[in-house]
């Protein structure tokens, strides 16, 4: 049985201009101890998907799903109170901006022991001892004296370590890391990633790594989910995805990596992510796709099983009959590329 099962999850925000679909029909399974990378541009719905799982979608956002289950328990039918017993204990999350994610008015010690006392029922003394242990585990020097420090007295990297310590305090089965290194210096980024991976292995904890950095995914994830405009575009094992991307979007993302650039200039994807008003009728990526056809402009492809993973494209890159199929559907590629 999978640890996490999400089926047909949608998250919508009513806005003045109509309903904004931030997450569109996302399904996902995650096993115990598995590391999943979720990649996509800003606004692709990767964070919102995970916030929906945590029950943290702010008002007036609406969450719809056919199934949302964690560890065999149905999150949809659960009361808020029951759900809060899970969040922060079995499912924990760390965020992009460590410094603003910690409460400036309370000490590190208070914020850390709060979780322990709530979920583990520890008394003040035991929680304090455990807090020191946790800070040591995440590599914070002179942990005991740091308990009385306030977040503004620590650096961004240290604060992210504190956030990690807080997240792993109750031995969660699943840790969601929402761009945990984006706000940090490059050298600190590597340290934090190392720490997360070490903790993941030691505790056999499932880890969802949300990022827009393909390099981070390559270093950490076993399986990768590529999201675009709220939809899953491709999903497969990390090795396969990097070796032979099947979706033109994934391929374009990969070719934009500096390591893979050919010649003097970095490859880019022309255009921008569709907004509320210019959401295409067909494939959401078609306006920016070099291979779009009349058919893909008009008919939205389904997410289908393909080459050991999943892909949402009429003409996956590895399809031997691809050229013939595209020709039949009136290619527009030249127009998009120009």
């Amino acid at each position: 049985m999978a640890l996490l099962e999400i089926e047909n999850l949608s998250v919508e925000f009513p806005t003045q201009g109509g309903i904004m679909r931030a997450v569109d029909d996302v399904s996902l399974k995650l096993d115990e101890g598995e590391v999943l990378g979720v990649v996509g541009e800003s606004g692709s719905g990767k964070s919102v998907t995970m916030l929906a799982l945590m029950g943290l979608i702010p008002f007036p956002g609406r969450v719809k799903a056919k199934k949302l289950s964690f560890n065999g328990r149905d999150l949809l039918s659960m009361s808020d109170r029951e759900r809060r017993k899970l969040t922060g204990k079995d499912v924990a999350m760390i965020f992009q901006e460590p410094t603003t994610s910690l409460n400036p008015c309370f000490t590190i010690g208070f914020q850390l022991t709060e979780t322990l006392r709530l979920h583990e029922g520890m008394d003040r003394k035991a929680a304090r001892r455990r807090a020191i242990e946790l800070l040591e585990q995440v590599g914070i020097p002179s942990a005991e004296s740091r308990l009385s420090a306030y977040p503004h007295q620590l650096s961004g990297g240290m604060n992210q370590r504190v956030m990690i310590a807080m997240a792993i305090a109750c031995n969660p089965k699943l840790l969601i890391a929402d761009e945990p290194t984006t706000a940090l210096d490059v050298t600190i980024q590597a340290q934090i990633l190392d720490l997360l991976m070490t903790l993941q292995k030691e505790r056999n904890m499932a880890l969802v790594m949300i990022t827009h950095n393909m390099g981070v995914v390559a270093e950490t994830a076993q399986r990768v989910m590529v999201m675009y405009a709220g939809q899953i575009m491709e999903e497969r094992s990390a090795t396969d995805l990097f070796a032979s991307p099947q979706h033109p979007y994934t391929a374009a993302l990969l070719s934009a990596l500096p390591e893979r650039s050919e010649g003097g200039r970095l490859a880019t994807i022309p255009g921008v992510v569709p907004g509320l008003y210019d959401r295409p009728r067909g494939c959401l990526f078609s306006p920016r796709c070099a291979y779009a056809t009349e058919h893909s402009r008009n008919v939205r492809p389904d997410l289908r099983d393909w080459a050991g993973g999943k892909v949402r494209c009429h003409y996956p890159l590895g399809d031997p009959n691809r050229d013939a199929a595209m020709k039949a559907d009136h290619p527009l590629g030249t127009e998009a590329a120009s």
Partner: peptide, 14 residues
């Protein structure tokens, strides 16, 4: 609307 309020909710606090 601050980030630390989201963190507090993510901890499962009432």
């Amino acid at each position: 609307g601050e980030d630390y309020i989201r963190t507090a909710k993510a901890k499962g606090l009432s």
